[in-house]
Design a protein around this nucleic acid. Sequence first.
DNA 1: AACCCGGGGGC
DNA 2: GCCCCAGGGTT
Length: 348
Amino acid sequence: MDLSTELIDWYQQNKRDLPWRNTTDAYLIWLSEIILQQTRVEQGMPYYYRFAEKYPTVSHFAKAPEDDILKLWQGLGYYSRGRNMLKTAQLVQQQYNGVFPTTYQELIKLKGIGEYTAAAISSFSANEPRAVVDGNVYRVLARFFGIDEPINSPKGKKLFQQLADEALNRQHPALHNQAMMEFGAMLCKPRNPACGICPVRLGCVAFASNATTALPVKLKTVKVRKRFFNYLLITDGGNLLMNKRGEGDIWANMYDLPLIETDGLMEPEALLQLPEIVDFFGENAVIKQKTTVIKHILTHQQLFIRFVILDVAPLKLKKNWFYTTVRNTENLAMPKTIFIFIKDFFNF
DNA sequence: AACCCGGGGGC
DNA sequence: GCCCCAGGGTT
């Protein structure tokens, strides 16, 4: 038996009884599909009941004030879904005389309906042979066929849509799509998949190679964190206030200057007003000099560094702060940017 | 192609 | 803290 047949068998024995599975009303299916976008079934369920009761047809929905829709949507997140639904309901009411479309070609034109949702509605309401590709389907296909192409690359998306199309049971599109997703949600889960009771484990490439945890592959956009470092330089000419960095951050256990990290770019004058600064330096700290902001690029972080030369001695020392002679800074392991600044400042 | 949108749950 | 959830729209 092929994958689809096996999964449909599994589905018919193990499926959850979900309200939107007991109808072919395209409007109600649309309602459920929009609610369930990026939303767990358990979270979306009460919203589905409330919407279906208050707006039993698309005509009822189309007449609703946007405030009412958003109020009912409250707590579900991604609120543009609610706004798009109203636009779509109004369009369906006017252009389609209140009859919700069931063909992929018509559905895909509507606000808030993309490839997945168009495939879902058309297959569930009219058995149009369109393969859905959602998070579950990506996972099931990637594991079963052992595909390590990233699911969120353009190439990967195309590949998985092709695989899904090939795997589609064209005699039973609705059943097939439901089965694929339910299987992914209940058994072939992201973590701790129940391979022990999986009906298709013998045909599963990932199971055979013990690679289920590694699939699917997802490109994680190496998101670069922006950080704002305000370094304080405090010296009497011979001695310099330094800081020894701790664990768990860049430059661990190395040395730098007393650091005030802020959430955004902050002018030194404003910096001195921060309660934490006042606590250490009093209210009479004078800015003797300040540098421009230096951009320091690391792999995962962009540091915006500014040095502020203060004409004040701290009232007390923070943990890890200590004085050393300017000469001795040459013996301390420091980030290059810091060391260069100190070297230039003291002209050695 | 990158970014934004959100609350909730699992680990 | 990070990942993921029945994704889609905008730039």
